[in-house]
Structure formats: structure tokens, C-alpha cells
Amino acid sequence: MKILVCISKTPDTTAKIAFTEGNTKFDENGVQWIINPYDEWYALVRAIELKEKDPSTIIHLVTVGTADAEPIIRKALALGGDEAIRINSNSNDSFFVAKQLATVAKEGNYDLIFTGKETIDYNSASIGSMLSALLDMPFVSLANKFDCDGNTATVRREIEGGEETCEVNLPVVISCQKGMAEQRIPNMRGIMAARTKPLKVLEPFEASATTSIKKFDTPPAKSGVKLIDPANMDELVRLLKEEAKVI
């Protein structure tokens, strides 16, 4: 089986969110970068677990990013995966990115394409769904359990107020979330091995962007907390009813 895992670089979860150039660009000053947690903890690790069960499995990683994404892709390779592809673009238009990934996916003839459920920076949750449309493959979103038997995948996914298990034939695109796999950290052997794993760099394929970011804003700060005497919960109830009007 051949698996493609889509990897994205995102700011660390504690990064200060600020903007520059007249609020048109994310301020990368002092920002630590990580593998998008959904891509790492769930998509990549589940692929690795599948390879541990069936060593003939081949895992390729792909990212759309400029040279500064290389430490991230190397870190992903340290966790597992056989080789990586980086498409040299820093676009943040979902369609453009999906088109790049789809081109790689088509050429590589993968049985399984894993993405994270969304990135923690743009929160668009769009890439998996777009990829499935571009590749004309079925798509199962928000998967929290995945197994494969021959050509049939069994996937459990989140639905409104519960979960649903389904069977679908490969090839298929899956977006992954909590539950898929146990988090792990790279070990020394993995880190050493990652240094020599192939990392191919491709120039972006022809595609047009469909959106552009005009500006960023940060939400207005809260005006300050109103403290209520713990002995006087009637007062809290009154405020929630009459001032906040939420109950």
C-alpha cells in the first residue's frame, strides 16, 4: 500500500499572533514552527502504525512550503515515512495548495491520502475535501479510527451528536483527528535516519489562486472581568439574565 500524508507547517500553539506591513502579513518574528498537530499526531502517526503492521507499506510526505518548511518536513521524516516532497510555494490559497497536492497525488498513484482535519493557523478545513474533488476520490472527514483490509478501508468518523463507521474502497482521502493514533515523539534513531531520507523539491505547478488575504485584525480585548462574591450566586444569575442576556 502507498500512503501520501499531507503535512503543513504552523506556528506553535503558544505563538504570539501579531501582524506586520499594515496588518497584511503574519508577523513571523520570534515564532516557533511546528508540524500542524492534526497532521502529525493523527495523520502521520496513523500512517506509521499502518506501516508497522504491514512493512511493505510506503509512506510519502508532501508539503507546500518554501525552504523554511524543511526543518518541519525533516522532523516529520524523523517520526517516520520513507521520503518527502516539498513544493516550493508559500501560497495560502487553499485551492492553489490543493491543486499542488493533487498533482503530486496523481503522479504517485497513492491508495490512501491522509490530511489533518484542519490547520491551526488558517482553520480552513478545506484541503482534504478539495483533494477528493480534484482526484475524483471518495472523502471521509473527521476520522477518529482507521483500518484497512486489502482494498477496503473501515473508517469511523464524527457526525453530529455521535459517530458513524463506514466501509469504503481505496483509493480514498481521509481527514484525521483525535482518536486516530497515539501521539509519539521522534527518537534519536529516527532523527539520524531522517537526515538521509530523500527530500525532493519541486517548483509549483500551474494553478491560479482564487482568493487573496486583504488584511488581518485582532479581536477587541475583553473589557475586564466582573468578579462576583461566591456566596452570591443569585447576583451572577441576575447578571447573566439581565446584563449579558444569555439565559
Binding site: F95, S129, L134
Partner: peptide, 23 residues
């Protein structure tokens, strides 16, 4: 932008050659 909307909308945008904003 709920569970199903997140899954379907981006695929629809590809099919309609439409730019999309989710969330």
C-alpha cells in the same frame, strides 16, 4: 461551517471553480 458543511463545501468550490471562504 458545521461537520457536514466542512466536509462538502470545499469539494463544491472545486466543482464550481469558485473561491471559498470557510469559517
Amino acid at each position: 461551517h458545521n461537520i457536514n458543511g466542512k466536509a462538502i463545501a470545499p469539494a463544491v468550490s472545486v466543482k464550481l471553480e469558485a473561491g471559498i471562504v470557510t469559517g
